[in-house]
């Protein structure tokens, strides 16, 4: 499997992240998205006429939508990540895969505007991003009230991976995550998964400090 990849693309990162979580080997083929605009080149458009990344190529199969790529990776490597236990779960996953496009079109476009100078109505994009994040926050809050944290099941599925990067990188586009405690806990749960990998702007969890022991002598004296 070859992933046509850009190191700063959250959509490409979705694929790299899921491949790492599933311990599935993929070969990376770097695309000079910025500043080279290689995705607009005739050679690249011959592969993907839409001129977008990521693209996953597996023998004759060419996939150009990140949701489809995540579905394929999970179907080949770890079926439980598809979230197909029952019709309701399956539909929820499909709903979140579609929802993730709203994050891409809002928070993602705001990020490209603010970071790489792409054109766009930045105020409108931030409003749309905020709407999408509020919806995500409400949904995760509802899951938490029932003891869960992941979007579609009691375990992580491709729904979480599809929504995670653009939500986590919203601050790159000037949209703060301060007011979304459930999103932040959900992101923490994803970052704690075995095999988690980073991308710029999405950091690994630092190791927890050891349990606090007895207070050092000097502090005890001062407080006495």
């Amino acid at each position: 499997m070859i992933l046509y990849d850009y190191v700063l693309s959250p959509s490409c990162y979705k694929v790299r992240l899921l491949a790492s979580l599933l311990v599935a080997g993929i070969d990376l083929r770097p695309v000079d998205f910025h500043p080279g605009a290689e995705h607009h080149s005739p050679e690249f458009r011959a592969l993907n006429p839409a001129g977008t990344i990521p693209v996953l190529k597996d023998a004759e199969l060419v996939l150009t939508e990140s949701g489809a790529i995540l579905t394929y990776l999970a179907a080949v490597n770890a079926h439980e990540w598809l979230g197909h236990d029952d019709p309701e779960m399956q539909a929820r996953v499909a709903n979140w895969l579609a929802f993730s496009q709203r994050l891409t079109a809002s928070a993602g476009a705001a990020r490209l505007h603010d970071m790489l100078g792409f054109s766009g109505d930045i105020d409108a994009l931030r409003v749309q991003a905020t709407d999408a994040l509020r919806e995500l926050e409400a949904a995760i809050h509802a899951r938490r009230r029932r003891g869960g944290i992941f979007l579609a099941a009691d375990r992580p599925t491709i729904a979480d991976i599809a929504c995670f990067p653009y939500a986590a990188l919203a601050p790159d586009g000037g949209v703060s995550l301060d007011s979304y405690p459930s999103i932040r806990l959900w992101m923490r749960a994803i970052r704690a998964l075995p095999g988690f990998i980073e991308m710029p702007g999405i950091h690994r969890l630092h190791e927890q400090m050891p349990e606090p022991g007895p207070m050092p002598d000097v502090v005890r004296k001062e407080s006495a």
Partner: peptide, 22 residues
């Protein structure tokens, strides 16, 4: 390294700085 690999390496490094700088 290919030119694209060298560009990506440096962009990766600088974008790690960006979130801190902001």
């Amino acid at each position: 390294s290919t030119m694209t690999q060298m560009i990506h390496f440096q962009q990766l490094i600088f974008l790690q700085d960006r979130s801190i700088l902001e």
